[in-house]
Amino acid sequence: MPRQRDVGAQRELLSNAVWQVLADDGLPGLTLRAVAERAGCTTGLVLHTFPTKKALLLHARDLLYERTAVRADGAEAASTDAFGALEAVLGQAVDLPHGQHDESRVWVGFLAAALADEDLAERHRAANHSFLTRIRRLIAAYRPEWTDERLELTTKSLVALVEGLNVLAAADPAGYPARVQQEALAAALSALG
């Protein structure tokens, strides 16, 4: 009797391999062969699940979005007030709690590829708009008297700070350690009054 494949387990294995190759080797290292080697399988199996490099990248971006959304939901739910929720959500977005920069490296790799591919760029914009919407909602809850213009500027400034810190820390973790990221965020949040 032929052995039944566990499609879910194979997809999870390949998913982890895609993530680790992009985090460890960056965009140039993300190849079907590298994913197959990391997963300990054939390139044929990788091609069956992810037929192109673009499919690998889209999958990595979706994983990143899912992981960060779960963390942001948890941070927000654990907060007792609007400012605490804003601080917690932005705080979990910088200096990753587990001390790794894998998520930042995956994000940077995806973003680099998105510069030359409209489908990838659209996936990035959708995730970014979701994060902007969350941050704007939290700021508006804390500062309901603010105008739409002030809410938009503050939202985009805070998101740009967090994402900029992540990009810089991905390439220079010693130059942008957790302490620096946390202090930069604290200074920006203190401007909210």
Rank of each mutant, 00 (worst) to 15 (best):
V18Q: 05
T155G: 00
R143N: 06
A127Q: 10
R179C: 03
A191K: 14
N128S: 12
H124A: 14
G40C: 11
V35L: 03
R5V: 10
A170H: 05
Y142I: 00
V21K: 12
M1D: 01
A188T: 10
G99W: 04
H129C: 11
L189K: 02
E122L: 15
P97H: 09
T155S: 01
V108T: 00
E87L: 08
V70Q: 11
A116G: 15
Q181W: 08
V7P: 01
L22H: 09
L86A: 00
E149R: 15
E163C: 00
T155M: 07
E118T: 13
P28S: 02
P173Y: 00
G74M: 01
Q181A: 07
Q20I: 04
G84P: 00
L158P: 10
P51K: 12
A188K: 07
L64R: 09
R123H: 10
E66M: 12
R3S: 07
A72L: 02
E103Y: 13
A114M: 08
E12M: 08
A141T: 04
D6Y: 05
E37T: 15
A113Q: 06
A121W: 03
Q10D: 12
S157G: 12
G74K: 12
D117Y: 05
V180K: 14
H129Q: 13
D24W: 02
R179H: 06
L13I: 09
A178C: 07
L115T: 12
A116P: 01
L45D: 06
S104T: 09
L86W: 03
L86P: 03
P144K: 13
P2D: 02
L189M: 02
F110E: 00
D102Y: 08
L63Y: 01
A178T: 14
V89I: 08
R61W: 11
A184F: 07
A69R: 15
F131M: 11
S157W: 02
R136L: 04
N166M: 12
V46H: 02
R105M: 06
G8W: 04
V106I: 08
G91H: 05
S15Y: 12
E152Q: 13
L90P: 01
G26D: 04
V89K: 09
I139C: 00
A184K: 13
K53V: 13
P97C: 06
A174P: 02
R105G: 03
Q20F: 05
S15K: 14
R143H: 13
R5W: 03
A170T: 03
G91Q: 03
R33F: 07
P173K: 11
R71W: 02
A36H: 11
T147E: 05
P173I: 02
E152T: 15
F50P: 00
G193D: 09
T52L: 05
A140N: 05
A55R: 14
S130T: 15
L168K: 14
R67S: 11
R143P: 00
S79C: 06
A9I: 09
A36D: 03
A75T: 04
R61L: 10
H59V: 07
A36G: 11
Q182E: 10
R71Q: 11
A186H: 13
T42H: 09
A170N: 05
T52C: 06
E183Y: 10
A60S: 07
W19I: 02
Y142F: 13
D95H: 13
C41P: 09
D24E: 13
D148M: 07
T52V: 11
G74V: 05
H129L: 12
A113P: 08
D119N: 12
A17S: 06
